[in-house]
Design a protein around this nucleic acid. Structure first.
Lengths: 150, 150
DNA sequence: GGAAACTAGACAAGATACTTGTCTAGTTGA
DNA sequence: TCAACTAGACAAGTATCTTGTCTAGTTTCC
């Protein structure tokens, strides 16, 4: 076993890469003026932006209880990132939607992510980055979604 | 902009990959009988295993306050993963060390990570995985460490 | 050598965000 | 049509973080 194919080194590199990406996204979002959001909120925004999200959907998506999700939604509503609307098909449920502010915040996150990826692309030869990204997608094609893990 | 080079897709793939890796490590650690640890503890173990760790070092490493780190250490000591020893050079400080149980837990995590990486390698052509891992290391060579981000 | 500034970590109090348990209103399926 | 199920609110308890303060020990600099 040489250092070059030690799987543990690779595992650490994966963790480092996502640390770096999340830090860069968080810094970009804060620099854009959204000081009261954390990466956890970003995971919630991503689900809500997909549409057809209820509190129970969000709970399942984030891997927390319904109550925890309801409290998170409360905070996001109070901070004017999210609105609750009547659900067209189920009078018990409430449909979650991003406000203009929430949408702007999500786009700030996406722009920051894109800047981070562009920066990575500039650090390595173009053919390497194309192959790298293709492999990345192949490896994660079967992963249904990302969510907070710590 | 085609889907193939949309940086956002790549960013999501990075997050998915680390979600998948952390889940696999966590499952392996729990399957090995360490039911009372979380990924957060793993980040702490990694620092303590490097040696010369004090509570303040751990706090800086994890990005939390000294008090939060001290409380985390308390829990790990009570669960018999960590021991506090006198610091040889500073009578205020206490040197943190993994117990045999803590070391066994860390190795369970490493074995789980290695199984995960081996599984990825089996999913893609060998030359792709070698290049993928090399690029991964190049991109993260300057990242000092990984830590919890959510 | 010694005083001022700094640092490690303990203690206490409070904030935040999660959990479990229970309840009502509404939906689904046999 | 009625039993079983589900969405989400309410309440209480728990875990884990924060800020602030304190003592003992270390470093710096005159």
């Amino acid at each position: 076993m040489t250092a070059a194919d030690d799987p543990w080194i690779t595992a650490v590199a994966v963790l480092k890469l996502s640390t770096r990406l999340i830090d860069q996204i968080d810094a970009g979002v804060r620099a854009a003026g959204f000081a009261d959001v954390t990466p956890l909120h970003g995971f919630a925004f991503a689900r809500i932006a997909m549409g057809d999200a209820t509190t129970a959907d969000l709970a399942a998506h984030l891997g927390v209880t319904k109550q925890a999700a309801a409290q998170l939604v409360d905070r996001l509503v109070r901070a004017r990132y999210v609105e609750r609307h009547p659900h067209p098909a189920d009078r018990r449920a409430r449909l979650l939607e991003l406000t203009d502010r929430g949408t702007a915040c999500m786009w700030a996150a996406r722009r920051a992510a894109e800047r981070a990826i562009d920066q990575w692309r500039a650090e390595i030869p173009p053919e390497d980055s194309a192959r790298f990204e293709a492999t990345l997608r192949a490896l994660t094609a079967s992963v249904p979604f990302y969510r907070p893990t710590v």
